[in-house]
């Protein structure tokens, strides 16, 4: 009796960890059955390219969610970064470095504002980041008067649309960043603190961890990644668009949750998020390949989110 129940617990643990990867594989196979076009390298290229901007911002979102926060401002930061990149680079390669640094600086500043309000004023991050999203949007509109201008130079365009074979440049960056932050979360003191804070903020504080600074840093990283994601989108588009990152905040949260990171914090990680991002993007591609209306993907996405949340909470109860 004892050994079987332990075996069952182990099995559940495995399912919890790798279940979502199995879903990804199943999806990968089904997509090919629905349309053989799916496996074409140009299509895989498209899927990976579309996954990478979402992926990059989802890394930041994962960190924020792991400490028990949430960042609804990333879509707005992305668009702001995209619009400024086009306007200030004006298509000239020699301006890429300073302007990119400026855009990333905007992201850091935005994250700093989010993080400071959340930590110093102890305000609910949902409301704070919803509010700051509006502020960043306002700044963008004041700057562009509603009409973005400028264009994106070839270096940044390569970032957004270039690549080798079926591997887009942006997905390589996304995977590198994911690898780095998976390592940071697993192996560094900083990563361990993130989990501890997510599990129990009070205990972490009473254990001498500077909770406010760690939480603040996750928002800064999220802002930085959002700005970077905005640059990738700018490269993908070739011009500034006032609404470039629209909906990315919710897609990122969905990808993180589908990947097994708990919205309560403390559980999950980057690996799951990478899988979650790929699932969300493949669903998008699959729905289009199947010739279903684009709105249909909302239904499928919603189903995946609902089922995975139900699944994770079921596993959580078995403890």
């Amino acid at each position: 009796m004892k050994s079987t129940s332990i075996a069952r617990a182990e099995w559940q643990n495995l399912v919890g960890k790798y279940g979502i990867a199995i879903v990804l594989v199943v999806l990968f196979v089904t997509a090919g059955i629905i349309s053989p076009v799916f496996y074409r390298s140009a299509n895989i290229f498209n899927v990976l390219q579309q996954a990478s901007a979402l992926g990059i911002v989802s890394i930041g979102q994962t960190l924020v969610i792991l400490v028990g926060g949430i960042d609804l401002s990333i879509g707005s930061i992305m668009a702001t970064s995209c619009v400024f990149a086009a306007a200030l680079m004006r298509g000239q390669n020699h301006l890429v470095l300073p302007v990119a640094a400026f855009c990333l600086g905007i992201g850091v500043l935005a994250g700093l504002i989010n993080g400071l309000i959340v930590t110093r004023r102890n305000a609910p991050p949902f409301i704070v980041t919803l509010g700051t999203a509006l502020i960043f949007q306002g700044i963008r509109f004041v700057y562009t008067k509603g009409a973005p201008f400028g264009s994106i130079p070839s270096i940044v365009r390569f970032l957004g649309k270039g690549g080798i074979g079926f591997l887009p440049a942006s997905v390589i960056i996304f995977l590198l960043l994911s690898g780095c932050f998976a390592l940071v979360l697993r192996k560094t003191a900083y990563g361990r603190k993130i989990y501890a804070i997510g599990v129990n903020r009070r205990v972490s504080h009473l254990s001498g961890i500077n909770v406010a600074n760690v939480v603040l840093s996750t928002y800064v990283l999220s802002g930085l990644f959002a700005a970077f994601g905005g640059l990738v989108l700018a490269g993908y588009l070739g011009f500034g668009d006032n609404w470039a990152g629209k909906g990315y905040e919710l897609d990122a949260i969905a990808a993180v949750v589908v990947g097994g990171t708990s919205l309560a914090g403390g559980k999950g990680g980057i690996g799951g998020t990478v899988v979650g991002v790929l699932i969300m993007t493949i669903v998008f591609n699959m729905v289009l390949l199947a010739g279903l209306p684009y709105q249909f993907q909302q239904i499928v996405k919603g189903l995946i989110i609902a089922v995975s949340v139900a699944f994770y909470s079921y596993l959580g109860k078995e403890d």
Binding site: Y195, A196, V199, R202, V203, S204, L206, G266, K267
Partner: peptide
């Protein structure tokens, strides 16, 4: 449980 330990760690 609230101040001493992170129960899930």
């Amino acid at each position: 449980k609230e101040e001493g330990l992170c129960l899930d760690l």
